Structures are given as structure tokens and as C-alpha cells.
Amino acid sequence: MDDLQFRREIYADPKSNSPEILKAKNTDPAKLKFAQEVEALDDKISNALNIPVPDDLCQTLILRQSLASHQQQKRKKYIRVALAASITLAIGLTVNQLQFSHAYDSVGDYAIAHVNHEAKYFSNSIEANIPLGALNKKMASFNGSFTDSMGDLLMAEFCRFDGIKSLHMVFRGKNSPVNIFVVPQSKHLSYKTVFDNHQYNGIVSSTNDSHIIVVGDKAEPLKQWQLKLQNQLRWFS
């Protein structure tokens, strides 16, 4: 058997005991050495592939699959909760906007509803720490400014009045907070210079294309507040 044929036979079957292979091994030390090396390599490969399977492999795989499924369900649940929260928030904002934009057709009704909605957040006892400069930065949006403080300012924030950007100020009053709104005039809301309900009185003055609305409880001297506004509120030309 020539060398090429011998190598082919050994590669095909390293443990071959055919008469031709045995004869070649016995008569040619080089062929014998080659056959032994290929057989040793074949044994190493077999041993490497012969990995024992752990007894708990099945349970381990099932546990991993369960954990993966659990994590996937948690992610889906989180996404659903986040989506539901977003939808709820959007609905809440929409309802709130609709409530204050379309339920009232007069400045007085709207102002009282706004005060009622936020009354629980303010009282005469809370700290007043808003300086005149901070207030006038906001008033600049309406082309106006205060020349002096009108009293203890509890809050000054932009708000939506009939969907229009407005300024809502809350001052410490005689018995309870006094609310003052600066609202750009809108054709959608009618107004009277005086309005009230069972709890609040309100007065409205109009200047520089804005309504100045003062709302307070029945004991508050609103005319005095209106006079302060006339004396201390200046409008830019």
C-alpha cells in the first residue's frame, strides 16, 4: 500500500485493523507512527466531545426559561402601566382644560371657579417670600410693572384663563387670601365690573388690553385693593 492510500485509510478510520493497514504498519515504522498520532488525536477529540450532562440540567433550563419569561412579563406590565399613566394624565389635563375653558362664559364666573379650585393651597398663614422684582419679571409679559409692593405676596404664577396665558397673584388679605388676575382681554368671555357668589366678591377693571380681576371673601375691602392697583401698576407704552 503506497503512502497516499495509507493516509487516506487512516484518516477515514484511525482504528482500522484491515490486513493491508496492519501489514503497512508492521513493515513501515513511519506509517506506524503516523497511524498512532492520528489515533491519539481521534481519542482526544472523542474525549472532548464526551461531556457528562448534569443531573439537574433540565430543571436549570426550565428555571432560566421561567425567569426570562417573568422578566419579559414584568417589562410588558411596566410598559402597560406607564402607558396607562400617560393616558390618565393626558385625560386629566384635557378635562381640567375643558372645565376651565368652556364651562364659563364670563370673567367673573371663571375667576371664582379658578379661586375655588386653588383655595385649598393658600391661607393667610403661609410664608410670603416673593420679592417685587420677581413679580415684575412676570408682569413684563403683560407690558406692565408694579412701582411698589401691594402687600404680602403669597404666590405669583402664570396660569390659563379661558386658555389664555394670564398671571395669578395671591396676596395676604384681611381675613383670607385675595386673588388678583391679569388677563389679556378675550372676545370669548364677557364681563361685568362687579360679580359675586355666596362666598366671594369680585371686581373687574380694564386697561391696556387686559382685565384686572380682584376676588376676595365678603369681608375683604376689594375697592381698596383696586385703588392700590390703580396707583401702583404701570403699563409700558
Score class of each variant (00 low, 15 high):
Asp13Met: 08
Lys15Met: 11
Lys15Arg: 10
Ser18Lys: 06
Glu20Lys: 05
Lys23Met: 06
Ala24Asn: 09
Lys25Arg: 15
Asn26Gly: 15
Thr27Asp: 10
Asp28Arg: 10
Pro29Val: 11
Lys31Trp: 03
Lys31Asn: 06
Lys33Asp: 14
Ala35Pro: 09
Glu37Ser: 09
Glu39Pro: 02
Glu39Ala: 14
Ala40Met: 10
Asp42Ser: 15
Asp42His: 13
Lys44Arg: 12
Lys44Asp: 13
Ala48His: 05
Ala48Lys: 07
Ala48Gln: 11
Leu49Met: 15
Leu49Pro: 07
Asn50Ala: 14
Ile51Cys: 07
Pro54Ser: 07
Pro54Phe: 02
Thr60His: 00
Leu63Asn: 00
Arg64Glu: 01
Arg64Lys: 01
Ser66Asp: 00
Leu67Glu: 00
Leu67His: 00
Ser69Gly: 00
Gln71Ile: 05
Gln72Lys: 06
Arg75Thr: 10
Lys76Arg: 09
Lys77Ile: 02
Lys77Phe: 01
Ala82Val: 08
Ala82Cys: 07
Leu83Met: 11
Ala84Arg: 11
Ser86Ala: 13
Ala90Ile: 04
Ile91Met: 10
Val95Thr: 13
Gln97Leu: 05
Leu98Cys: 11
Ala103Glu: 14
Tyr104Trp: 05
Asp105Arg: 06
Val107Glu: 02
Val107Ser: 02
Val107Arg: 01
Asp109Trp: 04
Asp109Lys: 11
Asp109Ala: 14
Ile112Ser: 03
Ala113His: 08
His117Ser: 15
His117Cys: 09
Ala119Gln: 13
Ala119Asn: 12
Ala119Ser: 14
Tyr121Thr: 13
Phe122Leu: 08
Ser123Phe: 06
Asn124Ala: 14
Ser125Cys: 03
Ile126Pro: 04
Glu127Ile: 12
Ala128Phe: 08
